[in-house]
C-alpha cells in the first residue's frame, strides 16, 4: 500500500483554544489509487492534505502516524520532511494560480526547484517538455512570467511542476472549484493520465463536488467536522451510500434531467458543529434524521462490507 495513516490528529491553534480540524483519521491508500476526499468547507479535508506535506503553525501536530511506501513520514518535523517533499509527496495547492513567484520566469523557477532537490536541470529537460505537451502547454511558457499565463494555464503549469519528480503521492486541493466546467474536466482527466502514465503512484483529490469524484476517483472518502465518516469504492458509495450524511449530500446534488417542478431536491438542514468544542459522540448527530441515544457515544469507523467503512451506529454490519 502506498499510504497508511493511523489516527492522525492535527489541530489549529487559536487564542480561544485548539480547533480540532482533523480529529483522528485512519485510512490506507493503495498503489495506483485515486482517492476522492469530499466534504463541506471546514470539514478538515484540506487540513489532512496540508498536514501530510507542510505542517506549520498555526497547525499543530497532536498525534498519529503516517507511512508512505513503508517508510515513516516525519510530518511533525519540518526539516526532515524537506527530503520527502516533491520527491515522495507533493501537492497542487488550492490557489495554485497564485503559487508562483511573479518575478521569476517559469523556466528559471523550475530550474531552481530542481537544483534545490539536488537534480541537474538538464537531466529533466526532456521529461519536462514531454509533460508540457501532455497538458497542452507550449514550451514557450518556460520563458514567460506567470502573469503572462491565463488561470487555466497556470493551473496546468503547477500540475507539471508538482509532479515533475514523480512523487509517490500527489494531492490536489480543491483545484477545480474555481474553474469553468470544460476546464474542470480537462484538468481532472489530465491528473488521471498522470496516474495512468505512472508519473505518480497515487492521488488524493480533494473537492466539495462529489460529481467530479464520481468521474475520476477509484474510491471516495467523506469527511464531516474533522472525522472520516464513510469510505468506499466510488460506485459503491454513490450507488449505495450508508452514512446519513453521505446520503443527504448525494441527494442534494442537482442532476441533469432533474427539474424543480418535477423533483424537488432537499438540502441538509442545520450547520456543522464548532470544532473548538465539538459535541460528544457522533458529530453529525444534531443534523441527523436518524439520531438516537447511542449517538452520544462516538461511533467507530468500521468496515461493514468489504472495502466499505462507515462511522455510524445505525448502519448494521453486512452479514452476508
Amino acid at each position: 500500500m502506498a499510504l497508511k495513516t493511523d489516527d492522525l490528529r492535527v489541530y489549529y491553534q487559536t487564542l480561544k483554544g485548539d480547533v480540532k480540524a482533523l480529529d483522528g483519521a485512519s485510512f490506507t491508500l493503495e498503489d495506483g489509487e485515486i482517492m476522492g476526499l469530499a466534504g463541506e468547507s471546514g470539514c478538515g479535508k484540506s487540513t489532512l492534505a496540508k498536514s501530510l506535506i507542510l505542517l506549520k503553525p498555526p497547525m499543530k501536530y497532536v498525534e498519529g502516524r503516517v507511512r508512505l511506501d513503508g517508510e515513516e513520514l516525519p510530518i511533525w518535523d519540518d526539516e526532515k520532511m524537506n527530503s520527502f517533499r516533491y520527491k515522495n509527496v507533493s501537492i497542487i495547492p488550492q490557489y495554485a494560480m497564485n503559487a508562483m513567484n511573479p518575478t521569476r520566469k517559469i523556466g528559471k523557477m523550475v530550474k531552481e526547484l530542481l537544483k534545490s532537490r539536488g537534480i541537474s536541470p538538464g537531466e529533466k529537460r526532456d521529461e519536462l517538455e514531454h509533460r508540457l505537451d501532455l497538458v497542452d502547454l507550449t514550451r514557450d511558457v518556460l520563458s514567460m512570467y506567470p502573469i503572462e499565463l491565463s488561470g487555466g494555464m497556470k493551473q496546468r503549469m503547477v500540475m507539471v511542476i508538482s509532479s515533475l519528480l514523480d512523487p509517490s503521492l500527489l494531492m490536489a486541493d480543491e483545484i477545480t472549484s474555481a474553474l469553468d466546467v470544460s476546464t474542470q474536466k480537462a484538468v481532472s482527466e489530465m491528473l488521471v493520465e498522470f496516474r495512468d502514465k505512472d508519473f505518480i503512484k497515487s492521488l488524493i483529490f480533494i473537492t466539495h463536488d462529489i460529481s467530479i469524484l464520481y468521474q475520476i476517483a477509484d474510491s471516495i472518502t467523506v469527511m464531516y467536522a474533522g472525522k472520516l465518516v464513510e469510505r468506499a469504492p466510488t460506485e459503491e458509495i454513490t450507488g449505495r451510500p450508508l452514512h446519513p450524511y453521505t446520503k443527504l449530500l448525494i441527494s442534494s446534488l442537482p442532476k441533469i434531467g432533474a427539474k424543480y417542478t418535477e423533483e424537488k431536491l432537499e438540502g441538509i438542514p442545520g450547520k456543522p458543529p464548532e470544532l473548538l468544542e465539538p459535541p460528544e459522540g457522533c458529530r453529525f448527530k444534531n443534523r441527523c434524521p436518524k439520531k438516537e441515544e447511542e449517538c452520544d457515544e462516538e461511533p467507530p469507523f468500521r468496515e461493514v462490507s468489504p472495502g466499505h467503512k462507515v462511522a455510524c451506529w445505525k448502519v448494521k454490519k453486512d452479514v452476508s
Binding site: 466546467v181 474542470q184 474536466k185 467530479i212 464520481y214 468521474q215
Partner: peptide
C-alpha cells in the same frame, strides 16, 4: 454540446 459533456454528473461518466 461541449458544456453538456463537461458537466460532472453523478449518474453518467464523461
Amino acid at each position: 454540446k461541449l458544456l453538456m459533456a463537461s458537466v460532472p454528473r453523478i449518474d453518467k461518466k464523461w
